[in-house]
């Protein structure tokens, strides 16, 4: 579980996040929505320690991040960055890097690490590409491998920054279903998305940010009722019922 208390953060002289207080519960898929520059990615980066907080408090499983070393933090929260390098290594090796926070000198992997990496590959649906070089994989397959690496990190929470970017529709849906499977296993998944329909369909909780402040927080139904998406994005979000539940569209 992640708890933010009056969190402030920014870059240089620019304040990006102001007084953010939120709780990300275990077993939930939480989606951060907001226009470009609203502070969604900054929020994730600040939680994971890539960006210094200016004030407030971040608690990971009840422990303040100030009391955690980078490795201890990495054992509690995994992060899938938006921009990544793709080294010319095989996918299994890539996933094994998720075990880095647990390695002590001389950084050799044990059978337990290999077992966890295999399980992560299977859970992420990437077992069939385990031996393939990363460079030869499609963007969708790579995303599965990165997700497997985050799973191998064996953390209670996983943060994903725009994970559906560059994915076709089928791979986007697969990724969302996979995120739901992870929450079913008790993990807390926090995701930055730009696709409002995907967020409304799959999220357990939606947080809407604008200018570094929380404008709305609730279930998709509550968010729809509040009309906060309409006012923040300047669109009209509509809903219609289908046999598989409510669907949303905007114009």
């Amino acid at each position: 579980m992640i708890e933010l208390k009056q969190l402030c953060a920014g870059y240089g002289d620019r304040v990006v996040l102001r007084d953010i207080s939120l709780r990300f519960e275990a077993g939930k898929l939480i989606v951060l929505l907001g226009p470009n520059g609203s502070g969604k990615s900054t929020l994730l980066k600040t939680i994971v320690g890539l960006n210094e907080k200016r004030g407030g408090e971040i608690l990971l499983d009840g422990v303040s991040v100030d009391a955690l070393s980078p490795r201890q933090r990495a054992k509690r929260v995994a992060y899938m960055a938006q921009k990544r390098n793709t080294p010319n290594i095989i996918a299994r090796r890539m996933v094994l890097h998720g075990r880095f926070p647990y390695l002590s000198y001389p950084r050799r992997y044990f059978l337990e690490d290999l077992r966890i990496a295999e399980e992560a590959l299977a859970l992420a649906g990437a077992a069939d590409v385990a031996e393939a070089p990363m460079e030869e994989l499609s963007e969708g397959q790579r995303q599965k491998v990165y997700l497997a690496m985050a799973l191998a990190q064996d953390t209670a929470s996983i943060l994903m920054d725009e994970p559906t970017n560059f994915l076709d529709v089928r791979h986007q849906l697969n990724l969302m279903k996979l995120a739901c499977r992870m929450t079913a296993k008790g993990k807390c998944v926090v995701m930055v998305l730009h696709d409002i329909r995907l967020a409304m369909k799959y999220a357990d909780e939606i947080i809407v940010l604008e200018n570094g402040e929380v404008q709305g927080d609730g279930t998709p139904g509550q968010i729809y009722q509040s009309g906060v998406i309409d006012s923040v994005f300047g669109i009209r979000l509509s809903k219609f019922e289908t046999t598989s539940g409510p669907e949303y569209y905007y114009e």
Partner: peptide, 23 residues
């Protein structure tokens, strides 16, 4: 050679490497 594993993680990019606990 003794830092080869750290170098591997560093090659994943700054953000990913830091999120894995690497300074």
């Amino acid at each position: 050679l003794s830092l080869s594993n750290e170098l591997d993680v560093l090659m994943l990019g700054r953000e990913t490497a830091q999120s894995l606990g690497l300074r």
